[in-house]
């Protein structure tokens, strides 16, 4: 277990250091996320009340679009100069590798979620009515998205399909996460009268299942 944690932190720290140096998140993904929020607002041409009621769904659609970019980047880092071969020869546990890469994607998603939360408060005049539910939903849905994204990113790379196919593979899998996270945010932002905590439980289940499946399946995808 100690070895898995050491490898996990090694891979996550490496990916985050690369992201920090390349500034892809700060210079490309974050502006893209804010642009999506602005474009949604312009396209809907709605009053503040309508935007507030749509804000949870728009927030999570923006997160998923940014997650696609983060996952593609995470895969490309290993494929660019065949570093993935070195990882296969390193003896590192594939589960630790999966968890490390998913953790790095999760950290990036959490940064984007904070930014997007600020975005919907400023642009859509949303107000946070349940901070705990908002934070836990962001974290739990982030885990589910990062786990599924890391798994399907490796799957797409292993199949040799073009990276443009990743959204087609990944987004259907993430549909339940999108629904659950939107409903929980509806409650946390006071946009609709639903039981957000019940949806959070569903999200937690999805996060656990996707993480376990990813950790187990990654060996097949990366090693063989």
């Amino acid at each position: 277990m100690r070895e898995v944690l050491a490898d996990l932190s090694l891979v996550a720290a490496k990916d985050l250091r690369i992201e920090f140096r390349s500034r892809v998140l700060a210079n490309q993904v974050a502006p893209f996320a804010l642009l999506v929020l602005v474009l949604f607002g312009v396209a809907l041409d709605a009053d503040q009340r309508t935007l507030r009621s749509f804000a949870p769904g728009l927030f999570w659609v923006a997160v998923l679009l940014c997650a696609l970019l983060a996952v593609q980047r995470s895969v490309a880092v290993e494929r660019a100069d065949d570093a993935v071969v070195g990882l296969r020869l390193s003896g590192m546990s594939p589960s630790a590798l999966f968890l490390g890469k998913a953790t790095a994607v999760l950290v990036q998603l959490l940064v984007l979620e904070v930014l997007l939360t600020g975005g919907i408060i400023v642009l859509y005049r949303s107000s946070v009515e349940d901070v705990a539910l908002l934070v836990l939903t962001g974290l739990t849905a982030g885990v589910a998205v990062a786990a599924a994204g890391t798994l399907y990113g490796a799957m797409a790379a292993g199949l040799g399909v073009r990276e443009t196919l990743l959204p087609i593979l990944l987004l259907p899998v993430l549909a339940p996460v999108l629904i659950g996270a939107t409903r929980a945010f509806d409650d946390a932002l006071g946009a609709a009268a639903v039981d957000g905590w019940a949806w959070l439980v569903l999200l937690a289940g999805l996060a656990v299942v996707l993480t376990l499946v990813g950790a187990l399946a990654y060996r097949v995808l990366v090693e063989d």
């Binding site: 490496k14 690369i18 140096r21 100069d81 065949d82 570093a83 071969v85 390193s90």
Partner: peptide
């Protein structure tokens, strides 16, 4: 070469040393 472009020469070598346990 199996290296990470955005890491330094030393960081790459240290990473692979740690990855080898």
């Amino acid at each position: 070469t199996g290296l990470y472009d955005d890491l330094t020469v030393a960081e790459n070598v240290i990473f692979w040393a740690r990855a080898a346990g």
